[in-house]
Computed example of a mutant assay.
Amino acid sequence: MSSLSEHSGAPDGVSGGQVVDALADAGRARRRATRWLLGMAGLAAIVLAWWIGVALASRHSALAAQFGPLAAWRTFPELVSEDRLFTHIGASLRRIGVGLAWAMLFGVPLGFLIGRFKTLETALSPALQLLRMISPLAWMPIAVMSLGVGDPPVYFLLTFAAVWPIVISTAAGVQQIDARWVQLGESLAATRAEMLWHIYVPGIAAHVLTGVRLAIGILWIVLVPAEMLGVNSGLGFLILDCRDRLAYAELMAVVLVIGALGFLLDTAARVVYQRFGTVRERE
């Protein structure tokens, strides 16, 4: 009987499985390249539409030219050379990290309890749904009056914005854990700590990471208006500063930075989920 490598035309010493793996890898590489090219084409189309729109508007107003992509690009060297941009980026990322940490500190335990105890879910669900539907920005005056100006009200608004997707995702993860695993742990006389670490944590890890990724997107949206609450650093503050100085080209450059950083944060969260969340799901 002839071997698979002979039928497939594979070189001597190369198995049919290796050929299949190589073809699969090539197919995945082509798909990744296609997705990348389509993504770049979409970005190019948006930039082109932006440039055409500004060019048409600048015929009637010379001020409109400052909002174009070329004007924004020319301001980047100045922003970078003065170290202003990286200082404000660092301040914004620090606030994102603190807000996300507080949201996880409150959201994961609360979501676990809601998912674990049906009575608690029934009692808290209406109140949580009501609070979740209130825009975090609606709390801005109360946050300033209660916490003053500076970082504390910003941390409060970011935490309030990010906690809900984490609570909901964690509760959903607890409720979807296979009851047979819980029964197995109880039948083996596992302690509460062992049940938590070996059954619940692996069971909800993917859901928690999903909630974190959603929370990061919400945090990045709320961050810019939150940084207009009397702070003297951050990308939101830089937007106001550019507006007050009538530096509209710099303003558009900062807008581009905000979009790029948000994209990178979401990409990082997606990579972490694919690295750890999918592994936990398979386990």
Rank of each mutant, 00 (worst) to 15 (best):
W50A: 01
L265H: 00
G111F: 02
A24T: 15
R30Q: 13
G185L: 07
R31G: 13
L137Y: 03
L38I: 15
R180P: 07
L128S: 02
G39R: 06
R132Y: 07
A33Y: 10
L264Y: 00
G236H: 03
G230M: 07
V144H: 06
F276I: 13
L219R: 01
L70M: 09
A65G: 10
L235Q: 02
I46K: 09
D244I: 12
L79I: 04
L110G: 00
G262I: 06
A189M: 12
L37D: 03
I216P: 04
R243M: 09
G68A: 03
G90F: 05
V20Q: 14
P141G: 13
A101D: 00
G9I: 03
A41P: 07
L147I: 05
L229W: 02
A226M: 03
V20A: 14
E6V: 07
I258V: 10
A45I: 04
F112Y: 14
L4I: 11
A172M: 11
P126D: 08
S233R: 09
P165D: 12
L137P: 00
S61C: 04
L37K: 07
W102R: 05
I134Y: 07
F106S: 05
E186D: 12
Y248L: 08
L38Q: 12
Q274L: 12
M228D: 08
L235G: 03
A215Q: 00
G185E: 07
R28W: 11
G107S: 01
V154P: 03
V222N: 01
G97H: 00
L240V: 12
A253I: 01
T210S: 13
I114R: 08
L70W: 15
L209N: 07
F160E: 09
S2L: 15
G68N: 05
L63T: 12
A49G: 08
Q183H: 13
E283Y: 09
G203N: 03
M40E: 10
G9A: 07
A171I: 01
E250T: 05
A161I: 03
S2G: 07
V272G: 07
I114M: 11
R213E: 04
H88A: 06
M195F: 06
T75L: 08
V182P: 07
M40V: 14
V144G: 04
M140Q: 07
G107L: 04
V144T: 11
S5H: 13
L251Q: 03
L264M: 06
A189K: 12
L48C: 12
S135E: 00
V254I: 12
F76I: 14
L265S: 02
V231P: 04
G185Y: 05
V222T: 11
A269G: 01
L246R: 02
M145Q: 15
T267E: 11
L37F: 09
Y200G: 12
R31C: 10
A162K: 01
S58D: 09
A247S: 03
F112N: 02
L264S: 05
A62M: 11
A193I: 10
H60I: 08
A161C: 08
W36E: 14
F86G: 04
L265N: 03
W220L: 09
A190M: 15
S2A: 15
Q129T: 09
